[in-house]
Design a protein around this nucleic acid. Structure first.
Lengths: 269, 269
DNA sequence: TGCTTTTAGTGTCCGCTGGACACAGTTGAC
DNA sequence: GTCAACTGTGTCCAGCGGACACTAAAAGCA
């Protein structure tokens, strides 16, 4: 396996200034961009002369995923991942230049390739049904790996799997008369909704203390300070368990698709 | 000032298990819920007998904001914030039970109260104009404090300012025939779009290395692996600088408002 | 006025993190 | 058979969030 760090001095440049003084550096910073691209998109350097590598990027990614699924992204550390693989943490640095890249690999592996959807008979489904199904499948992924939300904030490089999802959404809009930019914007719009609801679902998840505790907190707050938020109070009162986040998901999805339909209908095909 | 930690043993409960074994614990975890509620919503305990407090929650929040604005959320540590205020980091723990609460305070202070918008003459603006302006103003806030994106992932308690924004959006839909739940869902939908574009804008921000580097990376990737992503390649080729993220913002906003209009028009007022 | 109690800020300590670096042992190529 | 490349380990470091004991200041009460 080829050296994972380029020039050995390259990595040290990260430490310039007191704290980097520029980027978030929190998750997958852009500083890791080039490295991350190489790791995500290959080519994976073939083993050369030394001892056989005991690990590979996939195993590392899945070790991280296992931890993150069980304990959240905060539970993922180089130590824990390495321990899960039966090596010391420094062994991981033979495969990956830093933690940011581990997370990038985790993200792409966890998102996974989008399932093929055509088949299902001879009738072509139409853009609306396709996008609807696409959004639901993506939502399922975020529900399965809630930490994906935190892991995908900030500037980062998309991996092949993630790009595959984008491809599928954009191609669902082929032949609708929308321009290329518009098709991509539509995919971004849908992704935003998926993320928004996934986030809201996580807040109400039973993992978080006692049941839908946060919703209760909101209710209590409005009960106490309701005077300052009349419209919210009224809205919440008139709701009272109409459906919860499932409703928000369906509502937003329908609104977005309706909005797209308005545009598509007035376009010459 | 009253003791900030309740029973002194309460805090230790956080350390149960190897790593909490439950929550993300990364940002503002739900474990901080009760404390965060007290700090965000008051009542602020009035000073009692001891030495005069040299700080207050607002100053702490703004110190954190200053750092985060300059260096990103990753640059915010108790040490740095305390140093900016001229005290040791442990002094902060007299006001705040932990870092999570500092971030919660930063978030609410940075989001700020939504500007009043009525006035502007006698003509009532109508829900569409109101929501449009609302979304743009919220977007401005996220552009001003990009770290808000990272700071607001995960389950958390909303502060008065944040709830004020929600209030404004919901009240803009009063009288449209939408149910309370639907009005809230619409607000969530818009917020999701604001966040999605804010995130995408951050990726292309000049802060990140050389200019819109990440967009270039995407282009290079598609140039190399374009065969696997035909629809994306076509979309991106047909685009070529049609406008960038501004277009995505306008596109999504219009689509959402169109979708809402479809629903509202078919509702009896 | 003086004493006592409450409290603000400090200093010290701990476990953990991500990462640099030097080293030992294994392997393939010549 | 020798050598160069490479994997995994051990050790070290600065920085992090936070617990805890301590000193000093201020207010209430006698």
């Amino acid at each position: 396996m080829a050296r994972v760090r380029g020039e050995k001095g390259e990595k040290s440049e990260k430490n310039e200034g007191p704290e980097g003084a520029a980027g978030p550096a929190e998750a997958v910073g852009v500083a890791a961009g080039n490295d991350a691209v190489r790791l995500l998109w290959g080519p994976r350097p073939k083993p050369g002369r030394g001892p056989k590598p005991g690990l590979d990027l996939d195993r590392i990614a899945h070790a991280g995923i296992k931890i993150a699924d069980a304990e959240g992204l905060g539970g993922v550390s180089m130590q824990r991942a390495a321990a899960l693989l039966g090596v010391t943490k420094m062994a991981l640095y033979r495969y990956v230049p830093g933690k940011a890249e581990v997370i990038a690999l985790m993200v792409d592996a966890a998102i996974g390739r989008p399932p093929e959807q055509d088949a299902a008979g001879a009738t072509a489904p139409g853009w609306r049904e396709e996008l609807d199904g696409w959004a639901r499948r993506l939502f399922d992924v975020f529900r399965l790996h809630p930490w994906l939300l935190e892991a995908t904030v900030g500037p980062r490089v998309m991996g092949p799997a993630e790009l595959g999802w984008m491809e599928q959404a954009v191609s669902a809009l082929d032949g609708t008369g929308l321009t290329g930019a518009e098709r991509m914007d539509a995919a971004v719009l849908l992704t935003g909704h998926v993320r928004a609801i996934a986030q809201q679902a996580r807040a109400a998840a039973p993992t978080s203390g006692t049941e839908a505790q946060l919703g209760a907190v909101l209710g209590a707050l409005l009960a106490e300070h309701g005077g300052r938020f009349p419209a919210l109070t009224a809205a919440l009162d008139s709701t009272r368990e109409t459906g919860g986040q499932d409703e928000a998901w369906e509502f937003g999805l329908r609104r977005i698709l309706d909005g797209l339909a308005v545009l598509i209908d007035q376009r010459p095909a």
